[in-house]
């Protein structure tokens, strides 16, 4: 135990914790807007394109984070343009871009004379090798993503919710669409050191999917996703650090699996909540057809009778073996 505490007190570990905290906060902010647009896989696409950016950094000697930001922003804007102009075949166009990004990245890494192991630190993350400079860049970019993602939430929400309404309300929807794409690209580049480019999208999307099992408002989903993302990122890092000697537990996959574990726990709760809500949704009020009474009823319906009570106009129907029983005087009516 004291070994573990000692490990946590080491500077590289503290840098890693700070980086995980900021990444975990920022990634779900963008993820929320992507899920709202039903573009959950866009983060994956940008991640693939960013591989080429990293490789260009390795080739030119520039810091791979910056080349990744640059190339993934360009890729994200290209994806957005294709999405805006394309019809139903937009996903095919996106797929072409994804494969191009990954293949280009591997090819350029080879040209640069770098080993696959070097590229792998970006593909699967290397949070424990971050320098002070890396951490500062992570904090700055993640902070900008959170600030814009929350500050412009009303506008981004409206554009993602109903683009045509937002356009008639006078919003420049193209600016906001590109902004989301750019924020996604920046988040990908930021999270690349934490969980790696191939797992980035998990940190953006899984906390959102977990949060929306339990929430019913956008604001609640956004904030809960941020909290869950932070929990998964920091928790995953701490768990991987606690691995016994002689085993290698990488932080990136641990973080993603922890996020998925949270989803696995929340999903059945969400299923239950939704089915409960569906059962209790009021029956429509329409002019009654011929109405039928039940004379012999072995059971008194009431608040705690165990049968689902569903509002129906000015009274309540009890759902009883596929029938809808409405109390009427001293007997029940079939509704």
């Amino acid at each position: 135990m004291s070994d573990y505490l000692h490990l946590l007190s080491l500077p590289f570990m503290q840098r890693a914790i700070i980086a995980a905290l900021f990444t975990g906060l920022a990634a779900p902010v963008v993820g929320t807007y992507l899920v709202q647009r039903r573009l959950a896989l866009m983060g994956d696409g940008i991640g693939h394109v960013a591989v080429t950016g990293v490789a260009l950094g390795l080739l030119t000697g520039v810091s791979p984070v910056w080349t990744a930001v640059l190339v993934s922003v360009l890729g994200a804007i290209l994806i957005e343009v294709i999405r805006e102009r394309g019809h139903a075949n937009g996903d095919v166009a996106l797929a072409l871009l994804f494969y191009g990004g990954l293949a280009g990245g591997v090819l350029i890494t080879g040209l640069a004379g770098q080993s696959g192991a070097r590229l792998q630190t970006y593909l699967f993350g290397s949070i424990t090798t971050m320098s002070v400079g890396d951490v500062l860049v992570t904090m700055g970019l993640a902070g900008a993503v959170v600030l814009l993602g929350i500050g412009l939430a009303p506008q981004l929400f409206a554009v993602a919710q109903d683009q045509e309404f937002a356009q008639v309300a006078g919003l420049n929807i193209r600016v906001y669409n590109v902004l989301v794409a750019v924020l996604a690209a920046v988040s990908v580049s930021v999270a690349m050191r934490t969980v790696g480019l191939l797992l980035v999208s998990a940190l953006m999307v899984v906390p959102v999917a977990t949060a929306q099992q339990l929430t019913r408002s956008f604001r609640g989903t956004l904030l809960a996703a941020m909290a869950l993302g932070m929990l998964a990122a920091v928790g995953g890092l701490l768990i991987s650090a606690a691995a016994p000697d002689g085993t290698t537990v990488q932080p990136g996959p641990t973080i993603v699996l922890l996020a998925l574990a949270c989803f696995t726990v929340s999903w059945p709760v969400g299923v239950w909540l939704r089915s409960r809500q569906r059962m209790r949704r009021p029956f429509p009020v329409v002019a009654a057809a011929a109405h039928q009474t039940i004379d012999e009823h072995p059971h008194d319906h009431g608040d705690d009778c165990g049968h689902v009570a569903v509002p129906h106009g000015d009274h309540v129907d009890y759902v009883h073996d596929g029938h809808r029983h409405a109390p009427h005087g001293r007997h029940y009516d079939e509704h």
């Binding site: 039903r38 929400f157 109903d162 929306q212 408002s217 956008f218």
Partner: peptide, 11 residues
């Protein structure tokens, strides 16, 4: 009026 994320009537 729904989208990919839950939203309240107020929102």
């Amino acid at each position: 009026a729904a989208s990919g994320i839950p939203a309240s009537v107020w929102e």
